[in-house]
Design a protein around this nucleic acid. Structure first.
Lengths: 122, 122
DNA sequence: ACAAGTACTTACCCCAAAGTATGTAAGCGT
DNA sequence: ACGCTTACATACTTTGGGGTAAGTACTTGT
């Protein structure tokens, strides 16, 4: 059995994805642990798949391509593959992705400021 | 058995939380689905627990207090309880929390711009 | 002949995040 | 005596994000 109440939060969330809140909208696109980090690294210019992997050692290859794909689907990054062997694939920010630099830079700035706040006062 | 490689990504992530990347640092504090949304709603001034709940209908009470607690632990919001019955508890942004307005506003702005991008061109 | 490099794909598993549902304390109004 | 309110707490279950490990295709280097 295990019936679910018809007015459950889950159903509510499934139904109305109309996203009243712009922050919620943004979170749905760039949320998750890896997306902001990947986007941040792409801010310094186009990168190959292997370059990204080396730049973010903590990410697994599975997570990397998975999120790169989602970012493509959300029109934030563009994939350009040259038809050679060995493969040569580069990823770079789309226009919408470039617009995120403000957000990412603000995040990075805040991160630095906040971490300093607790370095002095142990 | 099911031994784990000593050089696994999991071990890597556990060990070095030194956070080389400032974005990673920020994500660890304000990441997750609900925190940015909660913080965003607190930007317009102190709010009672029940006010927050009403402002964010999609969040469950469990998630709400859980994240409010984490945000307190991370020194981003402050809880003020008046000792009356029925309880009167307000949450508001700390100094570090106020500093996030730049980030949150940038996110909200981007969210609006991005959503408009896909409203016209169906 | 075989390892190495590039950019993936796939199957399997685990755990933590999130949801569901219910309970609690303390007083007020009726 | 009972229900209503507020701000939580908690047991129990589910979902899916993320990690592990192995495989693929194609070519170059030795």
């Amino acid at each position: 059995m295990t019936q679910i109440k018809e007015s459950s939060t889950r159903n509510f969330n499934k139904g109305l994805s109309i996203t009243a809140c712009p922050v919620t909208y943004a979170i749905n696109k760039i949320g998750g642990h890896w997306k902001p980090i990947i986007l941040y690294h792409l801010m310094s210019g186009p990168k190959r798949y292997s370059e990204l992997k080396r730049a973010i050692p903590a990410v697994t290859e599975k997570m990397l391509i998975q999120h790169l794909k989602q970012l493509q689907d959300d029109n934030l990054v563009i994939r350009k593959a040259e038809n050679v062997v060995p493969p040569f694939v580069t990823y770079y920010l789309s226009e919408a992705g470039e617009d995120l630099t403000v957000v990412l830079n603000a995040m990075a700035d805040w991160g630095l400021r906040d971490s300093k706040r607790y370095m002095k006062s142990a």
